[in-house]
Amino acid sequence: MWLARAGVAPLTPPRPRTAGERPPLAAARPEVWLCRAHGPALRDLTHELLRDLLATYLDCRREQVPLRLESGQPPAVAAPWQGLPLSISLSYAAGVGAIGLCAGAVIGIDLAEVAPLPDWERVAGLYLGPQAVQQLAALDDAPRNHAFAAAWSEMEARSKCVGVGLEEWSAARARRLASSSILTATAALPPQPDGRMLVLTVARAPLPRPAGRDQP
């Protein structure tokens, strides 16, 4: 089920798709696909599925897809869908790869494993902020594990929407990530075959305004 987060604007949640599904795209509506593999094969499989998806939606052959996959850079495709730019986001955790596509808006997705973290307080303090530490400290172990994963996933998805990497918490960064223009939804995925639990956050933001187009 999709989890309501206090103070966060809701996003109509996409249903995670299997590799063989090709739902129709719609402007500003995120779509997400999941795939599973072990070890280094996961990224290769995810990239192959991404190329197949883009070939379908751009109506071209796989080898013609102008896909850019560069280390340290977000994935990008240099071709529009029905005149709209296509935003791409990828995430990996616990043998699961996730692909997010959105036409006409920026998408950020993130998977996080629900698992005990012995130094959760230190990590949360560094990256999620003092309010998150206070909220997490009020929970018992099991719900804290889930809440930490959900908060981490949302932080990462929002960061991808605004184009920033993982950075230590600051009030300025928190204000930027909390922008009301970023809509989010966070989900608990069904248990994996090995019993591990994951949460997935999908975030969507408006396209950046072109330079020189600001209103006076």
Rank of each mutant, 00 (worst) to 15 (best):
P23Q: 11
E63C: 00
P143E: 05
Y57P: 06
R144G: 14
E31Q: 10
K160Y: 07
T201K: 06
L177I: 02
G83F: 00
A6D: 15
G104P: 04
I182S: 00
W33E: 01
W33Y: 08
I88E: 04
V77D: 09
Q215F: 15
E21V: 11
R62C: 13
C161S: 09
R213N: 10
D110T: 03
S153G: 02
A187K: 01
L25S: 02
A185M: 08
R5I: 15
A150L: 14
L166W: 11
G125T: 08
A211G: 06
V114R: 02
P74E: 10
A112Y: 00
C35K: 07
Q82E: 11
S153P: 01
E21C: 11
A94I: 00
P191A: 09
R51Y: 11
R15C: 04
S153H: 06
G100Q: 02
S170L: 14
L3E: 14
V32P: 00
A171S: 13
M155A: 04
S159G: 12
A150P: 05
S153E: 04
L54V: 03
G212K: 15
P191V: 11
Q135V: 01
A178K: 05
R196K: 12
T186C: 11
A94P: 01
L50P: 12
R144K: 12
L42E: 00
Q192F: 03
P10R: 02
A41L: 02
P208H: 10
R175Y: 06
A6G: 09
R196L: 00
D194R: 00
P190S: 11
R176M: 13
E31K: 04
I88S: 03
L183D: 00
G97D: 06
R68K: 13
R204I: 15
C161F: 06
Q131F: 04
A37I: 01
M1Q: 14
R17Q: 13
I109V: 11
G83Y: 00
G95P: 02
E48P: 11
W120P: 01
